[in-house]
Write a protein that binds this DNA or RNA. Structure first.
Lengths: 211, 211
DNA sequence: AGCTGTGAACTCTTTCACAGCA
DNA sequence: TGCTGTGAAAGAGTTCACAGCT
């Protein structure tokens, strides 16, 4: 029932369950059992139940979890709410890929401003564009608490410092660099090369990272 | 000493250490202590030592870890070696962002072929382009074991099936969908929206996912 | 002194076993 | 009978405490 204290590994799996519920919703199904989910995702049914239980999802014996209700619950827990407004820092291919990602909008997040630290980069033809040094002021004024860091590696330090100074609460760091953020700010790191490296290590270790 | 049996959480942190060693290498420093690394990354020094120890890195009392040697060791463990050749599936903005990522090449991975399942999409002006149904044959002939899945969500299922059929050993799944792969194939999932969702959950829970 | 390496304690996560409900 | 919910056991991963090298 209480949304506080959800383990991080669980937090990482929840988006997958939500996606699965959404898929079932569009195909008109009303119930989805933990065992079916487990089969499709490749991990244990008990784990699925524990994960869903951690955010208060309630299933029905013999049928499973109600698709509509549960996907609403997950969506409310994972998505928008009070921190849906998000800053984008960066305008390169990576930033463009994020902006093109339809999943972000579906989760209720909105990219409300775009910043670019590199003065040499050309400004995007986007109404949301702002110079980087406006970030702290805007964060304060709009109450924005999330930022996506998608700049070229060599601008990562400067951008991170600006974000930290602005009192942002959480950063999705896509730069693949080893940045330091002050404690108290939540950081989730994702990087293509780090993911590939971990994958290669797992393949070499002859076991999947999620089995 | 033995590269087998490295815990997945460790595997996920190793790329950050490597990045840090590379940064120190370019600034000419010869030694790097676990405590300095811990401070910069925001986690415990003992953990850094255990992680490095897991891949056989050897430090020197009073000085720390030798920058050159350790970064070579980490690079060898995380990077290329026998499975450096990688397939890209997808040609959209996400795929382009991956292709533009300089970190991937630096780790020794090479994107050797690019596939697109959508017949409506225009083929990229890239010599590496191949139709999707050539994937299994090429995988067999080239011995490729890694694939990056970066297609539009609605093509994810078909692409995943082709990859599975081809005997690929590991997939970096960037689609954000809930795909099922046969057991025995390693899967690392990364998704902007899933990362954002996990971040929002962590911020709401008032604690960072890595503290 | 300063920092590494490691077995042991501890904590977090996953899995098991079974009770309960439709 | 089929699937959920949960306390208990097992398994991983993290942190502690301290020995050892330089």
């Amino acid at each position: 029932m209480e949304p506080v204290g959800v383990p991080l590994p669980t937090l990482r799996r929840l988006p997958l369950y939500l996606r699965l519920f959404e898929q079932k919703a569009t195909s008109g199904e009303l119930w989805l059992s933990s065992e079916a989910m487990a089969r499709e995702l490749g991990f244990g049914a008990i784990q699925v139940r524990k994960d869903l239980g951690a955010v208060g999802a309630l299933g029905s014996p013999k049928r499973g979890f109600p698709v509509g209700e549960t996907s609403l619950l997950l969506g409310r827990f994972l998505g928008a709410d009070d921190c849906s407004e998000t800053f984008m820092v960066g305008t390169g291919p990576l930033a463009r890929a994020v902006l093109a990602d339809e999943g972000i909008g579906r989760r209720g997040f909105r990219i409300v401003a775009i910043f670019e630290p590199d003065p040499g980069a050309q400004h995007p033809e986007d109404r949301r564009y702002q110079p980087l040094d406006k970030l702290p002021e805007l964060a304060l004024r709009m109450g924005t608490r999330l930022a996506i860091l998608a700049v070229e590696p060599r601008w990562a330090g400067e951008a991170a410092a600006t974000i930290a100074r602005a009192g942002i609460g959480g950063v999705l760091d896509l730069t693949g660099t080893a940045l330091s953020f002050p404690p108290g700010i939540a950081v989730v790191r994702e990087s293509f090369s780090a993911g590939l490296s971990a994958l290669a290590g797992a393949v070499r270790s002859k076991r999947g990272p999620e089995d």
